[in-house]
């Protein structure tokens, strides 16, 4: 049994007086595909944003790939991480956003090559070769020279996935990556993610309201409510035989809202 690649240890996070996370602990194994589900406002996005260092924690510890994320060890003491340490840790993690966040002034391939060229000093030719492979994987090769504004939502999201993959992170975070898409565009993005899960051993954390997809995709499902893990288990256990009342209630509501489980 190998060590967890993510180890969250008693973290708390408040926005003003509102405590979103209160002493949360969880672990993720290397290569694991984890789905985070739960009602709106339960803190799912906040967890991903904390892992991507877009949000700081108030207390607790997070270990990523054997190293502290928000702390660094100096002469046996734990100090608050500086920007250099954070930059080093960010190399291990990539994120795909609900609203794509593409760079509108750069064409598709430049969106993908920019970060490898700037942060890894990759030569343009090598960066473009890799970008074309990734665009091929997400089915966007023929749009390499298009501007983001010329793409559909599904296409934008596939480019955003390729852009995050270009830095070869060990961990990928997906925050409701299909919820801003028209229903008929959802599948093209989910198919890319299925392919990714099948072809790589990346660790993937997925926040989603697509219960059907979470069921097929995930090795393990965490059900969150009010910043706490209420229930966790294999997809079949959570979706077919939820033990907790709150999980049952949530799934019932989701099904009533027309989502497929």
């Amino acid at each position: 049994m190998s060590a967890p690649i993510i180890k969250i240890d008693g973290i708390s996070k408040s926005f003003g007086t509102f405590k979103v996370l209160d002493g949360l602990s969880m672990q993720v194994m290397p290569g694991e595909k984890l789905a985070l589900i739960g009602p709106s406002g339960s803190g799912k996005t906040t967890i991903l944003r904390i892992l991507m260092t877009l949000e700081r924690i108030d207390s607790g510890h997070i270990q990523v790939d054997g190293e502290q994320l928000y702390h660094m060890e100096r002469n046996g003491r734990l100090l608050t991480a500086d920007e250099r340490h954070l930059a080093k840790m960010r190399q291990k993690i990539g994120m795909v956003f609900q609203l794509f966040n593409l760079f509108p002034h750069k064409c598709v391939i430049d969106n993908v090559t920019l970060a490898p060229m700037l942060t890894k000093a990759m030569p343009r030719a090598a960066a473009e070769k890799r970008a074309m492979e990734l665009l091929d994987m997400v089915g966007m090769v023929d749009k390499a020279k298009a501007m983001p504004a010329q793409l559909s939502g599904g296409q934008k999201q596939r480019v955003a996935i390729a852009r995050a993959l270009a830095l070869s992170p060990k961990i990928m975070l997906f925050d409701e990556v299909t919820s801003a898409l028209d229903p008929e565009l959802v599948d093209e993005v989910l198919n890319v993610m299925r392919k990714l899960a099948a072809e790589t051993d990346m660790t993937m954390l997925l926040v989603t309201h697509e219960m059907g997809f979470a069921h097929d995709f995930a090795d393990r499902v965490l059900f969150f409510d009010r910043g706490r893990i209420v229930e966790e288990g294999k997809p079949d256990e959570i979706f077919r035989h939820p033990k907790q009342e709150r999980t049952q209630g949530f799934l019932k509501k989701i099904i009533a809202a027309g989502h497929r489980v």
Binding site: L54, R90, G94, L99, N101, L114, A115, T119
Partner: peptide
């Protein structure tokens, strides 16, 4: 803000 966040996620300085 989302442009800044994309930059952070891509580890740009």
């Amino acid at each position: 803000r989302e442009q800044y966040e994309a930059c952070t996620a891509l580890n740009l300085g």
